[in-house]
């Protein structure tokens, strides 16, 4: 199997808390969509952050696209993430003083690893139009609805055309109609960019369209490899 993500013997704890995450092995294949489900506090979001290189495990390895991201320097890991991993945060992680257009372009403005040019600008506008934000380019996050903010966060994650899309409960704050729209949007964009999607969710109804799921409740019962 052509593994996009390969996790081996991972141990992670938040210092000063009883939280412990222990994963013997996980391998996720390219171009497949995986859902992570499980109760709150079971480590779904933590796993996504470990895969994105935002958190560093105490032991074990996390390989993405064949690169062990935790052995990279901070700068290299950050550049690798911005180029190859698109992260959609649960709380959207939008900057309130930047308008829709500038929020989408933010990764290009904060990292020398990404070059902002007219092609990128045009792509950002296309993305905004394709997600229904085209007419709101000059609006600020505070002027958008929850669904629009979520779409904005997705646009920002997808702009660098990442190979891996990590979505942390992107439907958590949305009504059923918007939930379905957002999931379809993520899947559609992932397919269009030939990217792999890993999505954390509480909603079992959304599992239908995914190739695999990781149940963190089982996962906690015994350390296991999945997929």
């Amino acid at each position: 199997m052509d593994a996009l993500v390969n996790i081996q013997g991972l141990h992670f704890t938040y210092p000063g808390t009883p939280f412990k995450l222990h994963i013997e092995q996980i391998q996720l294949a390219t171009h497949q969509h995986t859902a992570c489900i499980g109760p709150s506090g079971s480590g779904k979001s933590t796993l996504l952050r470990l895969m994105a290189g935002i958190l560093t495990p105490q032991s074990g390895t996390v390989e993405v696209l064949g690169n062990s991201i935790h052995t990279m320097s901070d700068a290299r890991r950050r550049a690798f993430r911005l180029k190859n991993i698109g992260m959609v945060f649960q709380d959207f992680a939008l900057i309130d003083y930047l308008n829709v257009q500038d929020n989408i372009l933010l990764p290009y403005r904060i990292s020398p690893a990404l070059q902002l040019d007219d092609t990128v600008r045009n792509r950002s506008k296309d993305l905004a139009h394709s997600t229904g934000l085209g007419k709101y380019l000059n609006r600020f996050p505070a002027q958008l609805s929850q669904g629009e903010r979520q779409r904005l966060a997705i646009c920002r994650a997808l702009l660098p055309q990442p190979r891996l899309i990590l979505a942390d409960e992107p439907t958590g704050n949305l009504d059923p109609e918007n939930k379905s729209t957002i999931v379809q949007l993520l899947k559609g964009q992932a397919a269009e960019n030939e990217a792999t999607l890993i999505m954390v969710t509480h909603d079992h109804d959304l599992l239908k369209g995914f190739d695999h799921s990781i149940d963190f409740s089982k996962f906690f019962a015994r350390d296991t490899a999945y997929a």
């Binding site: 950050r78 993430r81 992260m87 992680a93 309130d96 990292s111």
Partner: peptide
Amino acid sequence: SEMRTMMEVGCARNT
């Protein structure tokens, strides 16, 4: 929180 968000998005401390 805005700075934390920036860093999560990929902003280096120096930046």
